[in-house]
Amino acid sequence: MRDSINQIIDSLLGPLAGLIRSLQEWLSPILPEATWAAYLAFALYVLIILGGGFMAILARNLVRAMLGLVLAFLGVAGMYLLLNSPFLAFMQLLIYVGAICVLIFFAIMLTRNTAEGEEARFPSLPAIGYGLLAFIAPLLVCGPIIALHSGQIDVHVPLPSDTGVLGQGLLSAYVIPFELISIILLVAMAGAVYLGFRGFAPRKKGQSQ
């Protein structure tokens, strides 16, 4: 039964697929090669990341700034796709867009702030200096490493990795970094709870509100 259905579907879709394949062969001199498509996608993602980043910094109200952050995260997810690891790309969206940004939005709503963004004044000169320092620091660290070891860096597209292999790596060879990251999250959470409860005096019994 299943085989006969399969045959029917094949006979229906076969000519269509053949038509598209012949179209592809016919168009192949005009169509860009895969590497060019990859460069194009890379440029697009870089533009999205930079545009989102600038929007996050320069926007005068917080929610617009968060929209910029979402754009930047989207671009990074695209970069992961380009690196042949769709699982990481989806996780980037799931965690950063689906959870982190939503929580930032929550924080914006809990704090008193107006739509016009009263905090958005032009930053002071030292603040700009610190910002530039923070911008240059990764370059200062990563630049020499890349320059010294440029011969050893593999610039080829990595092979698609199996999600199972990734999980086994995280729980065997890289288990200590993996656990350390969760400790950082725990510390951050404990700090948030401490800061949140510091202002409150414990409520006396029988006292309403």
Binding site: F90, M91, Q92, L93, L94, V97, G98
Partner: peptide, 14 residues
Amino acid sequence: VPDGIVLILAFAGF
């Protein structure tokens, strides 16, 4: 997609 359910959960956040 090999990681189909992750795709669904990821884009559901939007």
